[in-house]
Design a protein around this nucleic acid. Sequence first.
DNA 1: GTTGAAAAGTGCTGCGA
DNA 2: TCGCAGCACTTTTCAAC
Lengths: 156, 156
Amino acid sequence: MEKNYSNYDLDNLDIQILSILMQDASIPYTEIAKKLIVSGGTIHVRMKKMEEMGIIHGSNLIINPQKIGFDITAFLGIYLEKGSQYADAVEQLKNVKEIVELHYCTGQYSMFAKIICRDTAHLRKVLNEDIQSLKGIQRTETIISLEESIRRQITL
Amino acid sequence: MEKNYSNYDLDNLDIQILSILMQDASIPYTEIAKKLIVSGGTIHVRMKKMEEMGIIHGSNLIINPQKIGFDITAFLGIYLEKGSQYADAVEQLKNVKEIVELHYCTGQYSMFAKIICRDTAHLRKVLNEDIQSLKGIQRTETIISLEESIRRQITL
DNA sequence: GTTGAAAAGTGCTGCGA
DNA sequence: TCGCAGCACTTTTCAAC
């Protein structure tokens, strides 16, 4: 499905389309076409090209977790017993639904996760029962977010 | 715009609509209606209600930053000289476009940021010139993501 | 609150330049 | 390769249940 393009054959038009759609994916193609002074068909062709290039991976709803009862966002520094257990740990952690992001990284932690829970009891359950009990995980450090001050997309 | 609803008057239908749309926001209402065996109009009414409740905040494109030349994802632990400088620091950090998330949090760091940069030179510039030079910021700790193993929405 | 259908607007495709 | 025009589909609205 994914064709072989050079990573950098995006022109100004492509970038401008992305910039608009990254802020609000529900803006119709026809309106973008008007703004950029091209036809709607052109927007369509460019979008299709960028999907084939693997730049665009679909779209998703921006929801506010707190409004549906998920009150706690936390970051988790994970220490592995051995670095070589990484691939295994990832597979196990994929089953923990509360993890929304997981990174393999430099620095003191072997891995770094972002998790979203309903309340403190839920967080404790996830930490104790779902994560710290996994094979290869030595210990974890928890950072709880008290306020999300900024949340946005990159600027092109 | 945002009406006063209790935070928990979501029924099963609302939850199911959210679950479907959170995975792919481009699925048409008519198709959701078929799956859940209700009419398209009902989906529309429910979505409007959830927007008014502030649960849904729009939609956005899922893009792959690496494919458009943003190769480095990093997390930044930020130490403030005084905790009281938080509000001020947030205002300043809003001007740093490379920051995509910023949290006020518990633990050793006063604040915690996620940043996306083009390359190591870009990262160094952002750290030295844009962030560490700001008033009130004592020092920072950088964690670079070598691989994003998991990236998904919460499961309802 | 839900339904079903009609009206308005959008996305997609093929032809021409 | 791009732009235009027609068709199919989706969203939105509304009267009735």
